[in-house]
Design a binder for these strands. Structure first.
Length: 356
DNA sequence: TAGGCCATCTGGTCCT
DNA sequence: AGGACCAGATGGCCTA
C-alpha cells in the first residue's frame, strides 16, 4: 500500500506532507523550491486542520479496532454534562490514525486529478470560444460565460437561418462578460466596445466602472503587442506596414498570404467553428519560437458582407455596424489574431449563409 | 493594499 | 466501502 502510494507522483504532495519528505527535498530550481515551500505550507496548515477533525469522522473506519472511547458511555456518570448523541466514538489508535491519513492522501490525490481534468477541459473550451490566447487566458467563469454566449449566438444563427450583423453578434457574445473580457472580445472583433455594449450592460455599468463604459479604461492589451512581427518597420511580417495586426488584416488582407500556412501557427484542435462555417485551426505543437512564447489569438468570426472587397483599413462591420459609427481610432492593436481557414465540408451548409 | 483568480485541502453527501 | 462530486476554507500570486 505504502509502496504504491509513494510510487504514484500524484500522491506525492500528501505523502510528503505526512512523511515530512518536503523538508528533506533539495529542489534544484526556484520554481520547484517554491512549490515545495507551498506544499509544505499547505502541509502545515492542513495538518492543523487535519488534526482538528472531529472524532466522529473517524468513527467506523477501523474494522479491526472496535474499542469505544470510555468517555462516551458515561451516560449517568457525567451528571450535568449534556448527553452526547450519535455513534459512539472509537479510540484513535495509531493504526486507525495512519489509515485515516492514507485515505485522506488518496482522496486528496483524486481530487487534484479531478480538478486537473476539469481545468484541461476548460482549456479545451477556451480554445474553441472566440478570442483564444495562451498568454491572456480567460478566467474560468469568463470562459464559461463566453462559451454560453457563443453557443447561443450560433444557435440563433441556425434558428434564423441568416447571418447576423456583427454588432448584434458581439452584443450576444459579450452579454454578462466583465469589462476586460468584453474589451478582449471587442478587440478580437475590432470594435469599440461602446458601440455594441448592451443596454443591460450600460445599466449595470457600475459593476465594472462608474456607469459608462469606456474602451480606454480597460486597455486589454494583447500579450504580443511588442512582437517584432507587428512592429512598424519590421520587414518580417506581412502586416508590418500597419503597425498592428488587425483581425481583418489577417482575415481579408491576408487571404492567400503566406501567413495562412505559416508554420508559426498552431496545429489543429477540436474544431472551433467560425461563425462563417470555417474551421479556425490553431496549430499546436509547432516548434516555432512564437509558439513557445505562447503567442496566439484567434477570432472565430469572419463572415462579413463585402468584406472580401474591403480593404484592411476600410473595415465595414455590416450594415448596422456601419450605421452605429464604429470608430477605428479605438481599435485595439491585436497583433496576434490569427485566422486559419480550412474548409470542412460538414460546415458548407452553414457557410452558405455568409457567402451568398 | 484590496480584490480577483486560482490550487489545494477538507469534510459532507450521494451513488455504485 | 470506496469513489465521485461538491462547496467551504485557506493561502499564494498578480494586478490596478
Amino acid at each position: 500500500m505504502l509502496t504504491r502510494l509513494f510510487s504514484d507522483p500524484s500522491l506525492l504532495p500528501d505523502v510528503q506532507k505526512y512523511s515530512g519528505w518536503a523538508e528533506d527535498s533539495d529542489s534544484e530550481d526556484a520554481k520547484i523550491k517554491d512549490e515545495d515551500h507551498d506544499t509544505q505550507d499547505d502541509m502545515d496548515s492542513s495538518d492543523l486542520r487535519g488534526d482538528s477533525r472531529t472524532h466522529s469522522e473517524h468513527a467506523g473506519e477501523d474494522d479491526e479496532d472496535d474499542e469505544v472511547e470510555e468517555e462516551d458511555d458515561g451516560e449517568d456518570t457525567e451528571g450535568e454534562r449534556p448527553k452526547k448523541r450519535g455513534p459512539k466514538k472509537r479510540k484513535m489508535t495509531q493504526a486507525r490514525i495512519e489509515r485515516s491519513k492514507m485515505r485522506r492522501i488518496k482522496a486528496n490525490a483524486r481530487e487534484r486529478t479531478r480538478m486537473h481534468d476539469l481545468n484541461s477541459a476548460l482549456d479545451n473550451l477556451r480554445k474553441v470560444v472566440p478570442c483564444y490566447s495562451k498568454t491572456q487566458k480567460l478566467s474560468k467563469i469568463e470562459t464559461l460565460r463566453l462559451a454560453k454566449n457563443y453557443i447561443w449566438a450560433l444557435s440563433e444563427i441556425l434558428r434564423n437561418g441568416k447571418r447576423p450583423d456583427l454588432v448584434s453578434y458581439v452584443q450576444t457574445l459579450c452579454k454578462g462578460l466583465s469589462q476586460p473580457t468584453t474589451n478582449l472580445v471587442a478587440g478580437c472583433l475590432q470594435l469599440n466596445s461602446r458601440n455594441f455594449l448592451t443596454e443591460q450592460q450600460c445599466q449595470e455599468g457600475g459593476r465594472y466602472g462608474s456607469g459608462s463604459f469606456s474602451m480606454h479604461s480597460y486597455p486589454y492589451q494583447c500579450a504580443r503587442l511588442s512582437s517584432p512581427h507587428c512592429q512598424p518597420g519590421s520587414n518580417s511580417h506581412p502586416l508590418r506596414t500597419h503597425g498592428y495586426c488587425s483581425a481583418y488584416d489577417s482575415l481579408y488582407g491576408g487571404s492567400g498570404s503566406p501567413e495562412y500556412n505559416s508554420p508559426e501557427y498552431e496545429g489543429p484542435l477540436s474544431p472551433p467553428l467560425c461563425i462563417n462555417g470555417n474551421f479556425s485551426l490553431k496549430h499546436q505543437g509547432s516548434a516555432s519560437p512564437d509558439n513557445e512564447k505562447g503567442y496566439h489569438y484567434s477570432m472565430h468570426y469572419s463572415g462579413l458582407p463585402g468584406s472580401r472587397s474591403t480593404g484592411a483599413h476600410n473595415l465595414v462591420f455590416g450594415s448596422s455596424g456601419a450605421r452605429s459609427g464604429i470608430h477605428s481610432e479605438n481599435v485595439l492593436p491585436y497583433h496576434d489574431m490569427h485566422l486559419h481557414h480550412e474548409r470542412a465540408p460538414v460546415y458548407d451548409e452553414l457557410n452558405a449563409f455568409f457567402h451568398n
